[in-house]
């Protein structure tokens, strides 16, 4: 690893002009977002920075990779730094570029999201019955594991066969009961606090009034704990975005040693985002990008999303390893005849 080679990659990918452009855009948008609810402002700012910065950074990372293997190949290949060492140094530079960009995104988002009460932070997902229908005939029952002080949130899909429906969610542990009621005239969620105690927690969901149908789709219940500050949402979003963006930049950088920079940037984007864009549910579990978009949606609803899963971390690390192998092979291939 070489600090100057890392700095070289950083300067190429996140030039002062690029960073100034991102900062200008983010803070100009943040200044105009102040009348928007804080959670929506935070999500909007994050989306804006990602939409503007990601294509720019990916294109620049690919351009850097392409230059190293074309015009600058004699410089790279004649240096005592091996291709693997060049990759490690460059990826360190890409990580710094990612960090700086995300710091800009987080600070602009938090600049716009002010005066917000403390909310909940996602701690995990509990299984729930698959595709249960709330039609007022019988309650849906299942058990979950949630400690005292935690909140359970159930998402319901509104089926407009009637005008509305009131739903009650009951959480029972031993003799203690906590319940919540919510009126639905469109899809939404209902939350209940877990009662005290160590015994098994049983949940009951029932339509108590109204004529519309509600569906429990997906079979998941989210478990939340109180968040110290809602600004934690930006920290968690930065973790998700960092993992997703860093691995994407490394892939674009490495692919560019095999093809033109434009193709490399497009291919890396397609490989990273493709599974999620194709609507593959599984992709949101394992893809860093899938998890980022889920986290953004949750942040927009006023919650603090959960940190990236170990699976997403593993996928990002595998992507970095693949990029490293592609880069080394690309540089060696460049020296095997024109």
């Amino acid at each position: 690893m070489n600090a100057r080679a890392a700095l070289f990659a950083f300067r190429r990918v996140a030039s002062p002009a690029t960073l100034a452009l991102i900062a200008l855009l983010a803070f100009a948008a943040a200044a105009t977002e102040r009348s928007t609810p804080p959670a929506l402002a935070r999500e909007g700012l994050w989306n804006l920075v990602l939409v503007c910065a990601v294509p720019l950074l990916v294109a620049r990372a690919a351009a850097h990779g392409a230059r190293l293997n074309t015009r600058e190949r004699n410089f790279v290949a004649a240096s005592p730094h091996s291709p693997a060492a060049w990759f490690r140094s460059s990826v360190l530079g890409l990580a710094v570029a990612t960090l700086v960009t995300l710091a800009l995104a987080a600070s602009s988002a938090e600049f716009s999201a002010t005066n917000e009460p403390a909310r909940l932070a996602l701690r995990g997902v509990e299984p729930a019955p698959q595709s249960a229908v709330l039609d007022g005939r019988a309650p849906v029952r299942w058990s979950a594991s949630a400690g005292h002080g935690e909140t359970l949130r159930v998402e319901l899909v509104f089926v407009p066969v009637g005008t509305n429906a009131t739903v009650e969610l009951r959480a029972r542990r031993e003799s203690k009961l906590q319940s919540a009621r919510a009126l639905f005239n469109r899809s939404g969620s209902i939350e209940v606090s877990a009662p005290e105690g160590d015994g098994e927690l049983s949940l009951e969901l029932e339509r108590v009034e109204g004529d519309a149908l509600l569906l429990l789709v997906g079979g998941n219940v989210q478990r939340f704990v109180p968040a110290a500050t809602p600004r934690l949402a930006s920290v968690v979003l930065a973790l998700h975005a960092g993992l997703a963006l860093w691995s994407l930049l490394a892939l674009a950088f490495a692919l560019a040693t095999w093809m033109a920079a434009g193709y490399a940037a497009s291919l890396a984007g397609a490989l990273a985002l493709g599974p999620w864009l194709a609507g593959d549910e599984f992709a949101s579990t394992w893809s860093p990008w899938g998890q980022l978009f889920d986290a953004l949606a949750l942040a927009g609803k006023g919650y603090v999303p959960a940190e990236p899963s170990l699976v997403a971390l593993g996928v990002a690390v595998a992507q970095l390893a693949l990029a490293g192998a592609l880069f080394a092979a690309g540089i060696r291939r460049g020296g095997r005849g024109a």
């Binding site: 015009r71 600058e72 410089f75 004649a78 240096s79």
Partner: peptide, 14 residues
């Protein structure tokens, strides 16, 4: 590589 200094015909520098 550490013992060699190479100046190619075209400038390969950034």
């Amino acid at each position: 590589r550490r013992a060699t200094g190479f100046c190619p015909e075209d400038s390969p520098f950034p």
